[in-house]
Design a protein around this nucleic acid. Sequence first.
DNA 1: CCCCGTCATTGACGTGAGTCAAGGTGGCGC
DNA 2: GCGCCACCTTGACTCACGTCAATGACGGGG
Lengths: 197, 197
Amino acid sequence: MTAAFGTDIFREGEPAGALYNLTAGTVKLYNMLPDGRQQVAGALFPGDFLGLAMNDAYAHTAEAMDDAALCRFPRGRFEGLLERIPRLEYRLLAMVSNELAQVQDQMLLLGRKNATDKIANFLLQLSRRQAARREPANPVRMPMGRTDIADYLGLTTETVSRTLTSLKTGGPIRLLHGNSVELRDRAALEARAGGGS
Amino acid sequence: MTAAFGTDIFREGEPAGALYNLTAGTVKLYNMLPDGRQQVAGALFPGDFLGLAMNDAYAHTAEAMDDAALCRFPRGRFEGLLERIPRLEYRLLAMVSNELAQVQDQMLLLGRKNATDKIANFLLQLSRRQAARREPANPVRMPMGRTDIADYLGLTTETVSRTLTSLKTGGPIRLLHGNSVELRDRAALEARAGGGS
DNA sequence: CCCCGTCATTGACGTGAGTCAAGGTGGCGC
DNA sequence: GCGCCACCTTGACTCACGTCAATGACGGGG
């Protein structure tokens, strides 16, 4: 199954009929706010699962940020699998637990850090996830636009832009062509990311 | 098992040796930030579970906010239970999924709302949880101090205080003795809580 | 009963990030 | 190659919230 750029895979509130595994491309999860803005809950890369929280309805809308390919598991059939392979349920539980831990980190980030710390964190997170996917960790690719980054970090596009510029000027990063970022001084970023305020 | 006011039930990073069910009292979950501040991840009330994310280490420190009583399930024995009662694992998965959804709501709150909206949301959330526990929904009890509220909402104690005062002056709430709040105009609060910015 | 420690409130002030508003820049189709 | 459009960048200004600091209200212990 494939999803073209900009199309929804499922929408917030829809009955959760299936879960998916992303095999190629990038997908964002977000919630629409009443005023039209959106809160991006996360970005997913190949290997990640979508809709694995076993609730009745999807908690987010999932939208392809480029052309994506997915593996779809209808929920009924999946639950049948769970019955027969209890081990699988344990794995699933672990995955949801992991996701929970990640989201809680993100909470901490949103509540307590300033713009620079948020961006530093974000870049390092992307880098780590690229490495986990056995891609080069360094030139970090950002398939999403400034708006999505802003909505993910609780900032505005302007602030994201300004912050990236100031990190560029300050030395730790370099902006490359095609929405990529070279991390020139990872230690400096780590310091910002971990550090408070 | 009991935990007196101010004592830790478990600490962030410790091997997750057990999970707990809170039977009486109130417990907060938080992470310490390097600079000494804390991010409160949640408040737990009777009936809630602690440490149910099946990771190897606890993601938070759990501290009793008053004298609390807990039911402790050592992890080994619990996993034995899981083996024998697959249905239980499914229940557990559902609970973790719920928690995930809640935390994601909280993320949205932290990233995108102003102080008044956060407080309104917080009060309504407490009210709903009291109702879920079959206590009266209206005078909302707040067992935690201003500092904990602030650390939960990503604010400062001063801002929490000011915002409560302004809600009081504006009409929708009334501050009672003993850390309780009377909701006088729930609709007004709902409007703030749902509404954007 | 009063003192003192802890926590909440209130005020004055500074600042980081949001808002509003112009430019740039690159990609794509014609 | 040109123009259009979407997106990014930059600037000026504003304001909500944080910070620093003083005061006020409880509540428990001596």
